[in-house]
Amino acid sequence: MLRPLALLLPALIPSWRFFDVIAPSPRIEYALLPSADASADWREFRPRPQRVSVATMAGRLAWNPRWNETLFLVSCAERLVDAPSAHSENEIFRRVAAGLGPGVHEPWLALRLLFVARDGEALVREVLFEASPRRLSDLR
């Protein structure tokens, strides 16, 4: 009972520090593997589209589940690096597995978190977390 109340407290006494600091930003990358120890060909999960029309933006005011799930995964990725927990790792694995759809033949899924940050004028990318591969059949 105490844990949900502790989670509620920041909502009842909010800090309202939106975008006070632009922190390193996570990208979730995945690889499908024939075996747990195979080498990985990493791909970004849900890369953003090149262009989004004004009509699509307007429609997303009422229906935006995919993007909101992506933002939740960003929160999980940040939590996983700040305060590692099985919950965050499980959420990312399950939602990435579900997002891959049915036409996947490789049995193993590997995940890693790549963080993008600015160093001077350059963007730097650093892998801060890599999970042990899991069987896709266990995630669906």
């Binding site: 930003s25 996570p26 953003r48 589209p49 262009r51 993007w67 992506t70 993008v116 940050a117």
Partner: peptide, 9 residues
């Protein structure tokens, strides 16, 4: 580089 812009454009 943040996670928020909805498109590459």
């Amino acid at each position: 580089f943040s996670a928020y812009p909805v498109s590459e454009d």
